[in-house]
Design a protein around this nucleic acid. Structure first.
Length: 342
DNA sequence: GTGCATGATTATTT
DNA sequence: AAATAATCATGCAC
């Protein structure tokens, strides 16, 4: 209460650091022959100064109260409000309506499509699958990759939601605070509800621009994730052994015309759990590579030819019993035994 | 790290 | 539009 030294001397350096209210300091600072009298004076002044603020505050408060209670106050206040509203509206009546930001809508759509902003787990995995399909159809069998992708996506989603919630909370807090402040002030200066609303709008706009940044970086993260994990070219996976065997079996048993029809491709795709496009790729690659170096593939060709022959023999000798339990990989090889190995 | 295998992509041909 | 040929980029064994 009594130590407010910076008010009395330009002795700031020392005064701030120590206890300037102490006698020694006073004596030093003032040269101090009749220190006691001086000290008394200063003490009085200090006391006065200190009480001034309190008094004036009280006084102001009282005056405010008096004004508030004045009988003309409501009428005057209304007039002021009216005038202000008119001028304010005339100044910025035009820019009231804000069209939905197309950029923001784009981001929202993308986040929804990727399953980041959508519903919980279910939507996420569905969106992941959709994303996989959209990216050219990476095989649905590489589950390790997929779970990895999903985990990362979930991580992104969590971060996104946490941040969004944080922003929202901050926005609400800030808005409430400002509104309270304005409402409080509206008792002493003309603030129309419209003005408050406008202020709230401004705040929301500011916060939504922050949100947009969040959305943007989330989108970027998802895009990077997708290109890293689902771009089939970058992350090529070999087909599993069974799929390769099915494809090879077909290839070598149709060596004279290794061009599966669209239906055959579809069936092969289903059996191998890959897409038709992948089947086409495989046959395209296989044909060209086989042709380029038949010798290299001779062994493989013989093997599959023998296997097909055995299967054909089994099929014919056992009549309708096409499926032999000892060869699970021969599912549906009895298409047509027109193999013509070179 | 290197080299080959392999799935995907791209440009060209049919 | 499909097939081919060349090429890319990764997977994988060594």
């Amino acid at each position: 209460m009594d130590e407010q030294p910076r008010l009395m001397h330009s002795h700031t350096g020392v005064g701030m650091a120590g206890h300037p209210g102490l006698p020694q300091h006073m004596q030093e600072g003032t040269g101090g022959t009749d220190g006691d009298g001086r000290k008394q004076d200063i003490g009085d002044i200090l006391q006065q100064i200190m009480t001034i603020t309190d008094q004036s505050l009280d006084e102001a408060q009282a005056r405010k109260h008096a004004l508030n209670c004045h009988r003309m106050k409501p009428a005057l206040f209304n007039v002021l409000c009216e005038i202000k509203e008119k001028t304010v509206l005339s100044i910025r009546g035009a820019q009231e309506e804000e069209p939905p930001d197309p950029q923001l809508m784009r981001l929202d759509n993308m986040l929804l499509a990727e399953g980041v902003s959508g519903p919980e787990k279910g939507g996420g995995s569905a969106a992941a699958a959709a994303a996989a399909a959209a990216s050219g159809g990476a095989g649905p069998d590489n589950s390790a990759e997929h779970s990895d992708y999903r985990a990362k996506l979930t991580q992104i989603r969590q971060i996104y939601h946490t941040e969004l919630e944080k922003y929202e909370q901050a926005c609400n807090e800030f808005t409430t605070h400002v509104m309270n402040l304005l409402r409080e002030q509206s008792r002493t200066r003309p603030i129309s509800p419209k003005e408050i609303e406008r202020m709230v709008n401004i705040i929301h706009r500011k916060f939504s621009s922050i949100q947009m940044q969040l959305k943007q970086s989330t989108c970027e993260a998802v895009m990077i994730l997708r290109s890293r994990f689902l771009d089939a070219r970058r992350k090529r996976r070999n087909f599993n052994k069974q799929a390769t065997e099915i494809l090879n079996e077909y290839f070598y048993s149709h060596l004279s015309n290794p061009y599966p029809s669209e239906e055959a491709k579809e069936e092969l795709a289903k059996k191998c759990a890959i897409t038709v496009a992948q089947v086409s790729n495989w046959f395209g690659n296989k044909r060209i590579r086989y042709k380029k170096n038949i010798g290299k593939f001779q062994e493989e060709a013989n093997m599959y030819a023998a296997r097909t022959a055995v299967n054909a023999a089994n099929a014919s000798s056992h009549g309708s019993q096409a499926n032999s339990p000892s060869t699970p990989n021969s599912a549906g090889t009895c298409l047509s035994p027109d193999n013509a190995p070179l």
